[in-house]
């Protein structure tokens, strides 16, 4: 995980080349961060098609805005800021546009686990349990507000430090911690039933 407070930005060279119009350099940046950003957007939207379209828009915005990138933060932090802001805006619009209820979203999540756990392909039973758990987790995640879901995704799923999340969301570390605490409480409540059955 790049940390721009301690280390130099590992993407400096690629970013410089991309700014000069080298599309292969930008391709390399897409391949470097595509998976992580896909995870971030999917865990926030719970919809494959929306994730794909949003990710296209995020990288397009980053490509167009590259001349404005001054290197005051790491490229990683910068593109995460773009991704989080665009995803939060998209979720607000989606809510207004379709009036999608949580129940409708839940069923979409249950029937559409877009991500594949690549570590347990060999063990079908474990894979099945993980699949079920994934569905439950996605369901519980969708009960969180967008801002709480963003914090949980970045901290718990993507393993980012509090300071990095605070920088991306432009809030204090205290706010990040309190959002996490609240979100964990909510998830505990939503996962209680499944937890009792499985233990």
């Amino acid at each position: 995980m790049p940390d721009d407070t301690q280390q130099p930005d590992p993407d400096v060279e690629l970013v410089a080349r991309a700014r000069e119009g080298d599309t292969r350099a930008f391709d390399a940046l897409i391949l470097r961060y595509g998976d992580k950003l896909y995870g971030l957007v999917y865990n926030m939207t719970s919809n494959k098609e929306d994730t794909h379209d949003l990710l296209q828009d995020i990288f397009a915005r980053a490509y167009q805005s590259l001349p404005k990138f001054r290197g005051q933060s790491a490229f990683y932090t910068w593109i995460y800021q773009i991704a989080v802001n665009m995803t939060l805006n998209f979720l607000k619009k989606r809510k207004r546009r379709s009036g999608l209820s949580l129940n409708e979203l839940d069923s979409a999540v249950q029937n559409d686990p877009a991500l594949v756990d690549q570590t347990h392909h060999a063990d079908p039973e474990r894979q099945s349990n993980l699949h079920e758990l994934q569905k439950r987790l996605n369901e519980a995640m969708m009960h969180l507000s967008e801002s709480h879901r963003a914090v949980v995704t970045m901290f718990d799923i993507q393993g980012m430090p509090h300071a990095e999340i605070a920088k991306i969301l432009k809030v204090s570390e205290g706010t990040v911690r309190s959002r996490l605490h609240y979100a964990h409480q909510q998830l505990q409540t939503h996962l209680q039933e499944f937890w009792e059955k499985s233990s």
Binding site: L133, L137, D156, G159, H184
Partner: peptide, 17 residues
Amino acid sequence: DAQQIGDLLALKRHERP
């Protein structure tokens, strides 16, 4: 508990497109 929630969510780190 919170730790178990964290561990559960951490499993999703292995997810890839």
